[in-house]
Design a protein around this nucleic acid. Structure first.
Lengths: 136, 136
DNA sequence: ATCCTACGATGGACAGAGTCTAAGTCAAGA
DNA sequence: TCTTGACTTAGACTCTGTCCATCGTAGGAT
């Protein structure tokens, strides 16, 4: 966490209290908050932080590769701080809960050349859907 | 196509001109229109059709399993009439073009039990991203 | 320690996508 | 042909996200 802030400062990031709070809110495993949820939690620590700043900071963290943007439901995007460990997502169709999962195999390898239609494929995103224990 | 309309009428669907036009607009291979695009094309055939009706009809077609809803980019959802043939999507990061593709293997099989966290997993959605020939 | 200034924060207006509602219309069964 | 409840309509509304002009401040320079 403090690693993250140090790393970003090394890249010329100006370390403001707002950015610090956003980064702190995003810390942890299996965290997948929407921008509004991040804003709500940040507000508890720093009452005057604005929505625009939260959006800006999240956008920067995504560009810097420190956070992954996930849109699982066509509603609000969610932000996943687990960016340095490749993983996929398991989403509950009932309550929307998200878990990070690590499937076997390489899904990229499953797309044969004749199914690539001349595209340069560089990334695969897999979403497993189902019901979590509480919703089942 | 007329099969579709007959099938839906058999399920108690009232066959209105608006619904017919929406279904016609969605007909074809590799069709992935947004709701607004569907509305624009429907308007050419039926000038007074409203946005709400297009949204309602698309939602019904999705619930009935005749159309798949795809949200590839966190922008507008797209509607894919190719619902009876299991497939995945290849999306161009440049222009947003979507192709239907059929990868090898069963991605569901790649998620081991210890990575399911008690979820009842029923569906997998795979999105390949890259650049199409024109954008590369 | 203080000063400067460019980078960052603020909040309010704006935009795009989608939902809701109240009132009017019409498909299709009697 | 009549009736009725399902469907459609227009527009207001919500939610998510972006933009902009102005103000504030982190951190290097002195």
């Amino acid at each position: 966490m403090s690693d993250l802030l140090e790393r970003l400062r090394g890249r010329g990031w100006r370390l403001t209290s707002q950015r610090r709070v956003v980064a702190e809110v995003l810390d942890g495993d299996h965290v997948h908050l929407t921008a509004d949820e991040v804003h709500a939690r940040a507000t508890q620590r720093l009452p005057e932080i604005s929505r625009a700043t939260v959006y800006n900071t999240l956008g920067e963290l995504v560009s810097l590769g420190e956070v992954i943007e996930v849109s699982t439901d066509g509603r609000a995007k969610r932000y996943d701080p687990n960016a340095h460990q490749p993983h996929q997502h398991l989403v509950c169709s009932g309550c929307g809960t998200i878990r990070d999962v690590r499937p076997l195999g390489d899904p990229l390898a499953d797309l044969p050349a004749d199914q690539r239609f001349g595209f340069t494929v560089s990334e695969v995103e897999v979403t497993y859907r189902g019901l979590c224990p509480s919703c089942a």
